[in-house]
Computed example of a mutant assay.
Amino acid sequence: MVTGREKSRLRKLLWIIPIGFVVVLAVVLIAKWALELPPVASFVVRFPGITELPDSAPEGIPVWLAWQHFLNAFFMLLIIRTGLQVRSVKRPAAYWTRNNNGMIRTKNPPTRMSLNLWFHLTMDALWVLNGLVFFVLIFSTGQWMRIVPTSWEIFPNAISALLQYAAFDWPVENGWVNYNSVQVIAYFVTVFIAAPLSMLTGIRMSGAWPRNAQRLNRIYPIEAARAMHFPVMIYFCVFVFVHVLLVFTTGARKNLNHMFAAQEEAGWLGFLIFGAAVAAMAAAWLLARPVILRPIAALTGKVGR
């Protein structure tokens, strides 16, 4: 049964829809008006929204990057889900206690945490491992040049691309060869700023952090980590929403073929692989329940109430 307080909150949330529509409409109209002004039009001609890559930059998306993309999305989905559960669930279905007699022995007492937190940290570890492989591969193959700004011209080009996006006049670009400047900055922030921040704040809040390191704890207090960790998760949610929206509104078949099939042409293979990836993520979401997680968590610790 919905309480009066919940109804009040629902009404307030429903107001977001018309307000958001008005804001989006205003932004679109202002952007279209601005692009018709001669100085702005000249600016867009000079800076079309894309920055040239170095001559040594690779072309195309290799198969390993397509796999990395899927695994990153898979782990992030479960990390966000379990992170919200850790914050919202007051009475966990079960708790996990670390074994202190295995290969790794510590002086600290065995860690006890909710099964949701255990799953969250497990997904974190797999996501970090996937990220380390990603870093090694992009720097050894030159793919880093596609997502790292290599010229100051990226900033005026990013402003130009944002104006074009806001006016629903998509910037001319070919993701197989080069991302537009807004994409480059967004990917750079996500990969080299948001992801490390998420990892560092998560480690500070986890049981892996040394409890008795007083000097280190003063330099990096847990309150600072908590203050940053949740906003970083919100950033990832917004990034994923905008990313998926643009994938489907700027040429879905072509984009999905790039990202999932590692092919340049706009065929259907990428769409089929994307469908299988979504099915796998949906299955993981539904199967991530205590009845499934208990025996898996029991391999590394004790599970109980």
Rank of each mutant, 00 (worst) to 15 (best):
P149E: 05
I61T: 07
V244D: 04
L269F: 00
L137N: 10
G142D: 13
L121M: 10
P62E: 13
I16T: 11
F119Q: 08
A194Y: 02
A195C: 08
V189P: 01
S140V: 08
F188D: 12
T141C: 01
M281I: 02
S42V: 04
R46K: 15
L14I: 03
I185A: 03
M1E: 14
G102Q: 03
P54W: 04
V191R: 13
I219P: 01
V240A: 15
W64I: 03
R98P: 01
L71M: 11
N72C: 11
L299H: 03
C237H: 02
V63S: 14
V136K: 11
P62M: 06
T250M: 14
P39W: 09
G83C: 07
D169T: 05
I219Y: 13
K7L: 14
V136S: 12
P18D: 02
V40E: 03
A284S: 11
L77W: 08
E173R: 15
A280C: 00
V28F: 04
A280R: 00
F75Y: 10
A283K: 06
A224G: 10
T141D: 09
R211Y: 04
V191T: 15
D55L: 10
F192P: 00
A227V: 10
L71V: 04
W176Y: 12
K7W: 13
R215A: 06
N180W: 02
P39C: 07
I203L: 14
A41I: 01
M76I: 09
F155T: 06
V22E: 06
M228Q: 05
A57P: 13
F75M: 05
V182F: 05
E173C: 09
L117H: 09
V303F: 07
A208K: 14
K32V: 00
L132I: 15
L269T: 05
V182A: 05
F21A: 12
L65P: 09
G20R: 07
T201W: 07
R211S: 08
Y165M: 15
V86K: 06
W33I: 03
E59Q: 13
A261N: 10
